[in-house]
Design a binder for these strands. Structure first.
Length: 278
DNA sequence: AATGTAGTCAACCGCAGGCAT
DNA sequence: CATGCCTGCGGTTGACTACAT
């Protein structure tokens, strides 16, 4: 989005306790960017002194994280990202920063806003409804399978290893996603901002590696992980390299069909319920 | 064309956890 | 060990934009 009169843009600048508040000017942005470039992130409270900004540390951090970071995507949330958000929200609830770590280039604020806009009012899109329903369904099926397998005995373990390998691939999702910064372009045509940077890729991947260890089982049933962030945008039906045969992208091509309302499943309570199932 | 409403997004606020002293 | 500071997170607000009537 353009720097300028958006949102708070028309507000008169106000100064409270010596701190400027309200919309950031391009000049302030420059100062902040320059500061981060030289000193790195962190130590936000010293930014005001070092960079000559009359902004609180919190404000500086927020501006950087939500707007100035070079790796941010500036395009709309894509269906596949939406799918990820749905899944992770089902798992974690309103832990936006955690969810955001799984979506390189997206901020917690962005995801939070997106969620509130699209789902909070009890009006999830049909895409998301179906994606979520499928996610829950496949997770159930997977649990059943696991139970069956465990009852079959250890001789089947090597078969599981095959599955583990697949899940292992899932663990690369972070890196894939990180390098998949361009995924938004195909879906929206919006100009994605800046080229991928290594910082987020590594950072995100690191976090994802940890997370996906726990998340594999959740993500795979629905999306088959690796393809999750990459393929869905391509029109939905074609080209989903899904190993499950049915991915969230299957959902997106189709039209109407009001899924049953997810109702309580859709809010935090529901999320908690979902999580406890595991 | 004018008005009303919903959607979007940037920013602020308060709180909690971690860390240094 | 206690206290204070810093950072990060989630919730909320408010202004602009887009769309519908």
């Amino acid at each position: 989005m353009e720097e300028g009169p958006l949102g708070w843009g028309r507000r008169q600048e106000e100064v409270v306790d010596g701190w400027r508040k309200g919309p950031w000017t391009s000049q302030e942005d420059k100062l902040l960017v320059e500061h981060v470039r030289q000193h790195g992130e962190g130590r936000w409270n010293s930014v005001s002194k070092l960079a000559g900004l009359k902004r609180s540390g919190k404000s500086c951090r927020l501006r950087w994280v939500n707007y100035l970071r070079p790796d941010l995507k500036r395009c709309k949330i894509t269906p596949q990202e939406e799918s990820v958000i749905v899944q992770l929200h089902a798992l974690w609830g309103n832990r936006w920063s955690t969810i955001a770590r799984s979506l390189p280039g997206r901020t917690d604020n962005e995801i939070k806003n997106y969620w509130r806009t699209h789902f909070k009012k009890g009006k999830p899109s049909k895409n998301v409804e179906r994606a979520r329903a499928r996610f829950l369904k496949q997770r159930r099926e997977m649990m059943q399978q696991q139970q069956q397998q465990s009852s079959l005995g250890r001789q089947h373990l090597h078969l599981d290893e095959g599955g583990d390998q697949r899940r292992g691939a899932c663990c690369t999702t972070g890196a894939t996603a990180a390098s998949g910064d361009n995924d938004c372009g195909s879906a929206t045509g919006d100009a994605c901002a800046p080229p991928p940077t290594t910082t987020v890729a590594t950072e995100g991947a690191g976090a994802d590696l940890v997370m996906h260890d726990a998340m594999d089982c959740f993500l795979c049933p629905m999306s088959c992980c690796d393809d999750l962030l990459v393929l869905h945008g391509a029109g939905g039906q074609a080209g989903t390299g899904s190993c499950c045969g049915s991915t969230a992208s299957d959902e997106y091509g189709s039209s109407e069909e009001d899924g049953a309302t997810w109702g309580s499943l859709w809010n935090l309570d529901g999320a908690g319920e979902v999580c406890t199932l595991w």
